[in-house]
Design a binder for these strands. Structure first.
Length: 557
RNA sequence: GACCCUAUCAUCUAACGGUUAGGAUACGGCCCUCUCAAGGCCGGUACACGGGUUCAAAUCCCGUUAGGGUCGCCA
C-alpha cells in the first residue's frame, strides 16, 4: 500500500546519554519481546479480532455491539477472538469495571478464546491482556523509537499546551503539536540533558513524518477506500507515568497479539493515518481496519451518540434491570449491524442467533443507527414467543432474584402453577401470545392468579347487577374444570342463551336491541369477576389453573 | 475553524446504471374472534437539494445543505 513510502526516514539517532536518562531501568531487547509473540499458526483467511474496552465504569451497549461483530467475524472465519483491557488511564479507572465487562460478555454468550477469565486470570499465550501489566513492553518499543530518533521527550506543561492551543485557535490555525508548534522537537541535546537532569517531567512524543497537505488512501473493510491527510501531529506515545497512550498501545499490542482485523468505532477514523505511521515506524505491517458507526439516539430533534452519562439505555445494565431477554438484545444488535438478519431469522426460526453469517461487506456503513426501543420490543416478543413456559419461568425467576426478591419468592413457591400460567396460549407457533417480552412485566401477568381481585362492577356498565349476578351464578353451577376449550365455550353460550344474551355475534350485530347483550358480554362478566380486568389471556385456561373452587368463589358477586 | 465519514419511508434498511424503488418495525383499515395480545389480508408513507456524465442515475462525478465524528499526558 501507499503508506510504505513513509519508511524512508533518516533521523539523527538519540545520544546514549539521553536514552539512559529517559529509560534508566534495564529493559529486555526488542528481539526478546518479539520472540515471546510468535506469529499465530492459523488457516488462510482466519481473522484474529478483539474487543478492547477500557474499564472506566459502566458496560456500554456499544462495547457489546463491537464485541458481537468481532466475535462473529473472527469465529466464523475459523480465527481467534480475544479481550484486551485498555486500562492505561489510571485516573478514569473504576473498581469492578473489568469484572463487569468480562461477566457481561459471558452473559450474552460471547466466548473469548483469550483474555481474562471469570476469576480475573489471564488466558492465552499472547498476554498479559491487561495493558497496565504490559508497561515494560511499551517501554521497550518506545525506547527503540527514541533510539532511532523517531520519538523525543517533550517537557511542555499542560499550561504550555493549553496556551499554544489558544493562540492557534485565535490565529485560525489547526490546533495541535505539529510543525513549528512542536516546540520540544527541536530542543538541542544540551537542553534535553539539562531538563532531564533537573528532573523536569516529560512525555515521549512520536516524531510525525507526515505532511498535512499529502493524502493517503487506506482501505476500510466496511467503508471502502478512504482518503485522509497524512498525520503531522507529534502525538504523545508515552505519558509522564510511563504508560502508553491508546495510539501507541494499539500498535504494539495489536502487532504482538497478531490481530489481523481491528474493528472499532469510527471515532478512530481521523487517527488512522497516525496509527499507520506508528506501525510503519516500528517496522510492522498494519492490520486491516473496520470502522463501525456508533449507535445513536435522537435528542431534542438531533441525533447524537448514545452517551453513558446522559442515557440510561447506553449501559447494558439498563436492559438487565428491566428484564430484557439477552437473546433479544443480541438479535436486535445483530439486526442493527446487518439488517438482513431478520430475513435470515425468518428463514431459520429455530437456529441460535449466533449462527447468523456475519459478512463485513454487508454491514451497514451508514452514519449510525438510531437505537429503537419499538424494534427491540418487537424482536423481544418473537424471542420470548419461541421460548417454552419453563424457559420463561426460569428466566423470570433469575431476573426476579436479582431485581424483585418478593416476586422471586412467589415464583419459587409456586413453580408448577407459574409454568402453567406462562404456558397459556404458548407453543402454538406464530400465533403464540406476544404480550410478554421483558421479565419485569411478568408479575402483572401472574398477579391475579395469586390475589383474588376486588370486584369492580363499573367495568361492566351498563349491564345491570341482577343480570350480571345471574350470569355468574348460572355459570358457576355448570362449570367443570375438566372441560376443554370447546366444552367450556359451549357452556358460556348456554349461559348466554339462558339469560337473553345473543350466542351468535352476527345475529346480535344485526339486531342488538333484541338481546341484553352478546356472548362477548357474558365472557366479559366472567372475565371481570375472575381476573378483575376487562382484558386477559384465554379465560378457559385461566379458570383451569384457578380450579373449580376458586372460580366459584370469584363468581360470587 | 480545519479535516474525515454519512445522506432511500417515522425507524432499521435492500438496491451495487434499466425494479410498478423491496423487506421489517411502527401506523391505518378489514377479517378472525370470549376481551386483549397474536395471526391473516390490504393500505399510505422514502431516493436531501442543484448541476453534470449517460440512450438510461437512488446508483457514477461535482457542488450545496444537513447530521455525525476527530483535532487531549481519554479511550
Amino acid at each position: 500500500m501507499l503508506y510504505f513510502s513513509l519508511t524512508e526516514r533518516k533521523e539523527k539517532n538519540m545520544t546514549p546519554e539521553i536514552l539512559d536518562l529517559l529509560f534508566p531501568n534495564k529493559l529486555p531487547s526488542v528481539d526478546e519481546i518479539l520472540a515471546k509473540y510468535p506469529p499465530r499458526q492459523l488457516p488462510e483467511g482466519a481473522r484474529v479480532m478483539r474487543v478492547a474496552p477500557s474499564p472506566t465504569g459502566k458496560m456500554h451497549v456499544g462495547t457489546l455491539y463491537q464485541a458481537l461483530l468481532a466475535e462473529r467475524a473472527a469465529h466464523q472465519s475459523g480465527g481467534v477472538f480475544y479481550l484486551r483491557l485498555e486500562d492505561t488511564d489510571q485516573k478514569r479507572e473504576l473498581a469492578g469495571a473489568a469484572e463487569l465487562i468480562i461477566s457481561s460478555l459471558a452473559r450474552y454468550g460471547i466466548k473469548l478464546d483469550e483474555g481474562i477469565d471469570a476469576n480475573g486470570n489471564d488466558k492465552g499465550n499472547y498476554g498479559p491482556y491487561t495493558q497496565s501489566q504490559r508497561k515494560e513492553i511499551y517501554q521497550v518499543f518506545a525506547k527503540s523509537l527514541a533510539e532511532k530518533g523517531l520519538a523525543y521527550p517533550c517537557f511542555c506543561s499542560a499550561e504550555d499546551i493549553e496556551m499554544r492551543r489558544k493562540i492557534q485557535t485565535k490565529q485560525g490555525l489547526r490546533p495541535g503539536y505539529y510543525g513549528s508548534h512542536a516546540k520540544c522537537r527541536n530542543l538541542t541535546d544540551d537542553e534535553v540533558l539539562s531538563n532531564l537532569k533537573a528532573g523536569k517531567p516529560w512525555v515521549l512524543r512520536f516524531k510525525a513524518p507526515g505532511k498535512y497537505e499529502n493524502q493517503i488512501v487506506v482501505k476500510d473493510l466496511m467503508k471502502g477506500n478512504l482518503s485522509l491527510p497524512e498525520n503531522d501531529m507529534d502525538i504523545v506515545i508515552l505519558k509522564s507515568d510511563g504508560l502508553p497512550t491508546y495510539h501507541f498501545a494499539h500498535a504494539v499490542d495489536d502487532h504482538l497479539m497478531g490481530t489481523t482485523v481491528v474493528s472499532r468505532g469510527d471515532e478512530w477514523l481521523s487517527s488512522l493515518p497516525l496509527h499507520i505511521q506508528l506501525f510503519v515506524a516500528l517496522g510492522w505491517k498494519p492490520p486491516k481496519y473496520a470502522h463501525l458507526a456508533p449507535i445513536q439516539k435522537i435528542d431534542d430533534g438531533n441525533r447524537r451518540k448514545l452517551s453513558k452519562r446522559l442515557d440510561p439505555e447506553a449501559s447494558i445494565t439498563y436492559f438487565w434491570e428491566h428484564g430484557y431477554p439477552e437473546e433479544a438484545q443480541v438479535e436486535y444488535l445483530l439486526n442493527l449491524l446487518n439488517a438482513s438478519f431478520e430475513d435470515w431469522r425468518r428463514a431459520n426460526p429455530t437456529l441460535p442467533a449466533f449462527d447468523f453469517p456475519m459478512n463485513f461487506s454487508k454491514i451497514s456503513n451508514t452514519a449510525g443507527a438510531l437505537f429503537d426501543f419499538v424494534k427491540l420490543h418487537s424482536i423481544a416478543r418473537e424471542v420470548v414467543a419461541r421460548m417454552s413456559a419453563e424457559q420463561v419461568y426460569e428466566a423470570t425467576l433469575k431476573w426476579a432474584k436479582e431485581y424483585k426478591t418478593e416476586y422471586a419468592t412467589l415464583l419459587e413457591s409456586n413453580r408448577e402453577k407459574c409454568i402453567a400460567i406462562f404456558n397459556i396460549e404458548r407453543g402454538i407457533g406464530a400465533k403464540s401470545r406476544k404480550d410478554l417480552f421483558k421479565w419485569e412485566d411478568a408479575e402483572h401477568e401472574t398477579e391475579f392468579f395469586f390475589n383474588r381481585p376486588t370486584y369492580d362492577e363499573s367495568l361492566l356498565a351498563p349491564m345491570t347487577h341482577e343480570d350480571i349476578q345471574k350470569v355468574a351464578a348460572d355459570f358457576a353451577t355448570i362449570y367443570d374444570s375438566a372441560d376443554d376449550n370447546q366444552a367450556w365455550f359451549a357452556k358460556v353460550k348456554q349461559v348466554a342463551e339462558q339469560n337473553g344474551f345473543a350466542t351468535d355475534m352476527k345475529a346480535y350485530k344485526a339486531d342488538p336491541s333484541g338481546f341484553k347483550g352478546s356472548v362477548a358480554d357474558v365472557a366479559k362478566i366472567l372475565r371481570v369477576a375472575i381476573t378483575g380486568r376487562t382484558q386477559s389471556p384465554d379465560l378457559c385456561s385461566i379458570m383451569k389453573i384457578l380450579g373449580k373452587e376458586e372460580v366459584a368463589e370469584r363468581l360470587k358477586i
